[in-house]
Design a protein around this nucleic acid. Structure first.
Lengths: 144, 144
DNA sequence: TTTATATTGAGATTGATTCTCAATTACAAT
DNA sequence: ATTGTAATTGAGAATCAATCTCAATATAAA
């Protein structure tokens, strides 16, 4: 089960005529090292901190590939720069984002999934991905 | 009915101890001159083209104010820069986006609004904006 | 080994957005 | 009207994430 994502990534790359280099492997491993959001700059430093290396350019390039093959998802921009999260092995979820403290609350809703299906059916639309995010103030922050 | 948005904006500004200057009025008027998405750079040139003036700085500052008072909504970033649409006088809607032909289907769902409220209540979250978009294939395009 | 192709990284570049701050404006109080 | 006070403006500088450039390097096949 472990390293399943590496297998998926390698196969995806091969199909494209690309290779799983040590930089790409380092990025992949860091991305999957724990669950949660991250941004490219994060990755850059964490990879260094672990004694591996990858340039910013490679990080941006590799994230693009990871999006393409569906191992990573782009989260809506919270402030000014992009955030990502890996999705392989995790149930899809949506987000509540606090505008004050930046906290991201994950949301799992069966009802929402059902509703989505209904809405698509009505329009005869085949959905391949969706984004649902609410911005506002979390419990703590709304109490001023 | 016309210029209703100006009344709303002025009252909002007054409450903040701010004024409806001619620059702010020019921006407001341009924003409401037609329906559809726009970006700050657009505004900058269109305002000039109409013989009015406002600096980029003022445009960005004023858009912030318009977001604050709810007259304008930020649309999810399509490419790299922010897009907006004015919402006063228009029902909120979500989008289905066809990946093949680019068609954007507007979506109005009472159920979705209700569900949103429920979800926020559960987390004690005060929602100020949301994004819900599904990407996939529209009726025509899914038939290959 | 030779050849061809993919990949990398340092640094430059881009471009949207934000910031700075001196000059200007609006308006209330005298 | 004049003065004082606070809000506002704009030109250009600064910021900073993201992208691009391109020579050097790695990889794999012939």
């Amino acid at each position: 089960m472990k390293q399943m994502e590496e297998k998926i990534f390698r196969e995806f790359l091969e199909k494209k005529g690309c290779k799983l280099t040590k930089e790409r492997a380092a990025i992949l491993s860091e991305v999957f090292s724990k669950h949660g959001h991250f941004d490219p700059e994060d990755l850059f430093f964490k990879i260094r901190a672990k004694g591996m290396k990858a340039s910013r350019a490679s990080i941006y390039r590799t994230l693009q590939l990871l999006l393409e093959c569906g191992l990573v998802e782009q989260v809506e921009r919270v402030d000014k720069h992009a955030h990502y999260e890996h999705i392989f092995g995790h149930k899809h979820h949506d987000h509540l984002i606090c505008l004050k403290c930046g906290k991201v609350i994950q949301l799992f809703s069966e009802k929402l999934s059902k509703l989505q299906e209904q809405l698509c059916k009505k329009e005869n639309f085949r959905c391949v991905s969706h984004t649902f995010e609410m911005k506002g103030y979390c419990e703590k922050c709304r109490a001023r």
